[in-house]
Deep mutational scan, measured.
Amino acid sequence: QVNIAPGSLDKALNQYAAHSGFTLSVDASLTRGKQSNGLHGDYDVESGLQQLLDGSGLQVKPLGNNSWTLEP
Rank of each mutant, 00 (worst) to 15 (best):
L9D: 00
K11W: 15
A28Y: 11
D54P: 03
N3C: 15
A17P: 03
S29Y: 12
V26I: 12
V45M: 06
Q59K: 14
A17E: 03
S67P: 00
D10P: 03
L49N: 00
S25W: 14
P62H: 14
Q15A: 13
P72T: 09
G7Q: 11
A12K: 03
V60R: 02
Q1R: 14
N37T: 08
P6R: 07
P62N: 13
I4D: 02
L49H: 02
L53T: 06
L63C: 11
T69G: 10
G55K: 06
L30M: 09
E71A: 09
S67F: 09
S8Y: 08
G33P: 07
S67K: 11
S56Q: 06
D54N: 13
G55A: 05
L63R: 03
K11C: 14
Y16D: 01
D10I: 11
N65C: 09
D44G: 08
N66Q: 05
G48V: 04
Q35W: 15
Y43Q: 03
G21M: 07
K61L: 08
Q15H: 08
N14K: 15
N3E: 10
L13E: 02
S29K: 11
D10H: 11
Q35K: 12
G55N: 04
S20G: 13
D54T: 13
G33I: 00
L52K: 00
A18T: 08
P72W: 10
A28H: 11
G64P: 06
T23A: 08
K11H: 13
S56E: 01
S67H: 14
V45I: 14
N3H: 14
K11F: 13
L70H: 02
W68F: 12
N37S: 11
L24I: 13
G55M: 05
A5Q: 11
N66M: 07
V45Y: 07
G48K: 01
N37G: 11
P6C: 10
K61P: 04
E46Y: 15
L49P: 03
G38P: 01
L70Y: 02
L9S: 03
G21C: 10
L52V: 03
N14Y: 13
A5S: 11
L70A: 05
Y16I: 02
S20H: 15
H19Y: 12
G64V: 03
A5L: 10
P62F: 15
S8Q: 09
R32P: 08
